[in-house]
Design a protein around this nucleic acid. Structure first.
Length: 271
DNA sequence: GAAATCGGACATTCAAGCTA
DNA sequence: AGCTTGAATGTCCGATTTCC
């Protein structure tokens, strides 16, 4: 599969300027309860022209593999610990890759060693560079009534110029622990148009998908404030709406997958 | 409402094929 | 020899179903 990443321009080894605290792990930490997802986007390898790349463990445990759930490198993994089956948490066996498989002719290359894509209408699918990325973006002010769940207390940051209600963004120093595509929030009064995203297990806290930002569901601030202090690296990527935005659906936030599931479960057992 | 299920998108691996 | 390609293989997201 042709890669969209130009690896020559991305130094995966050299460290980036510390946009996040050093106590954020780049892998899942096994130190319970601190199984912590690294902050997506904080590592250059996480990015594909603006898209956050999903990270996978090298070898999922048998339980997670069977359940098609996220595993981690620790044994027992977080999920097995959670379900009290630590002793059953073992690496799954991987098949040996087949050898001797003949391959057809390669696609013709251009002069630079790249494969020429002959597929009609196929081109570099560039992702808008202004796409906001957790861990890299300049933190916008949070939506009214929606707070980062790791927030401690309000800070001295002034939110002057805010037209529809004042909101002083709280600071928080606890590294986030949540799936890369979701942002944990505390929202005692979540705006109605975002209520669809509340899969909150407790009444006031839960996750909102970070990618609603990428779909212009969170328009840029109308005022002149463009940057918040770097002491707020995990500021919630939600903006304050002057007027309620349309209620997003999962179709509009990138979750719209057609034909994702057939009416009958296919028997995929190949053993 | 929480947990389980599972289709399929996405990521990774690595040998075959290609090129300098 | 080293690089590129792409099929095989694996992970796990997230919609849907089932359970309590």
């Amino acid at each position: 599969m042709p890669s969209l990443i130009n690896n020559s321009s991305v130094d995966l080894q050299s460290p980036q300027p510390p946009t996040v605290p050093s106590n954020l792990t780049t892998t899942l930490s096994s130190a319970l309860p601190g199984h912590v997802y690294h902050f997506p986007g904080s590592h250059p390898a996480d990015q594909d022209g603006g898209r956050v790349k999903r990270r996978q463990v090298k070898n999922a445990c048998t339980r997670c593999q069977k359940a098609c759930k996220k595993c981690d490198d620790a044994r027992p993994c977080l999920r097995c610990v959670k379900y009290g089956i630590s002793e059953e948490c073992v690496d799954s066996k991987r098949k040996e890759q087949r050898r001797g498989v003949k391959r057809g002719p390669y696609k013709k290359r251009d002069g630079k060693g790249r494969a020429v894509n002959n597929a009609q209408g196929c081109q570099d699918v560039a992702v808008p560079s202004e796409r906001l990325l957790p861990g890299h973006y300049v933190p916008p002010p949070p939506m009214e009534g929606v707070y980062p769940r790791h927030a401690q207390s309000s800070t001295t940051v002034s939110n002057s110029g805010e037209s529809s209600g004042s909101f002083a963004p709280p600071s928080y120093t606890v590294p986030p622990s949540y799936p890369p595509h979701m942002f944990p929030v505390y929202a005692p009064h979540l705006p109605e148009h975002l209520s669809g995203f509340r899969g909150f297990t407790s009444q006031h806290s839960g996750y909102l998908p970070t990618n609603i930002v990428n779909n212009n569901l969170c328009p840029p601030r109308p005022d002149s404030i463009t940057q918040y202090p770097t002491s707020y690296p995990y500021m919630s990527p939600f903006y304050l709406y002057a007027n309620p935005a349309p209620k997003p659906t999962f179709d509009t936030v990138g979750g719209g997958l057609e034909g994702k599931r057939s009416s009958s479960a296919a028997d995929n057992n190949d053993n």
